[in-house]
Design a binder for these strands. Structure first.
Length: 212
DNA sequence: CGACCGATCCTC
DNA sequence: AGGATCGGTCGT
């Protein structure tokens, strides 16, 4: 059987160059592909967070100069913003909107889809561990996908790191507050986190309302 | 130039 | 609940 992913369309620049909240919602269900000498890995996006630049106290670009760490966020949408956190983990963001609008989408969790053996190896997990340990958090998914600072600024319409449209959008999407931004005052209440609620691969379990 | 701290993860 | 670990950012 031939590779079922090679026939899927790549997301074009126009997909990314829209409002960051729209892009964050519509990224759910899309396939993230990372190609490297070690092999190709694929994950389905199940959790995202929007960061809205100068209008959002939680954003790295809230008050930062357009040079330095956040410079790529000022480029037109469709590039990778990768940063180091806590000195030891990477987080992967997708730059959104037009040039000079420093908005981006943090990818927080993936459903592992292709080449799970390579993901297990990179995450140093035993084969008997559940696949949910591979990509259920922004640092974990960067390890599993092989995303490091060397992909800072990478063009997501290229061949090393790109997104595919599998066709059917997820039927359910919900919005919640973002994770670990307690410092962000009023912005911590914004409903800028988007999840596929029934996915077992989220970074945190959803708080379920009681049903009788 | 030094101190502080984080869009995290793992182990205790 | 706490430690690992380091570059960006801000204050002196």
């Amino acid at each position: 059987m031939t590779d079922p992913y090679s026939s899927l369309p790549k997301l074009p620049p126009s997909f990314y160059q829209r409002d960051v909240l729209t892009v964050s919602r519509e990224l759910l269900g899309k396939l993230l592909v990372a190609q490297s000498p070690e092999g190709r890995v694929i994950g389905r996006i199940v959790e995202t967070e929007a960061y809205r630049g100068h209008e959002d106290k939680a954003a790295h670009s809230f008050r930062a100069s357009p040079d330095g760490r956040t410079s790529v966020m000022y480029e037109a949408g469709g590039r990778a913003y990768v940063y180091l956190i806590y000195g030891m983990y990477c987080c992967f963001n997708i730059v959104a909107d037009k040039k000079d609008v420093p908005h981006a989408v943090l990818i927080r969790a993936l459903e592992p889809v292709d080449n799970l053996p390579l993901m297990y190896a990179r995450r140093k997990q035993r084969p008997e561990a559940k696949p949910a340990v591979l990509c259920s958090g922004p640092g974990k998914l960067c390890q599993a996908m092989g995303i490091s600072l060397s992909l800072y600024g990478e063009d997501l319409t290229g061949s090393r790191l790109y997104l595919l449209d599998p066709g059917a959008p997820p039927p359910n999407i919900i919005a919640t507050p973002r994770i670990n931004i307690d410092y962000a005052e009023e912005a911590k209440n914004y409903l800028y986190r988007f999840v596929i609620p029934d996915s077992p691969f989220l970074s945190k379990k959803l708080i379920q309302s009681k049903t009788p």
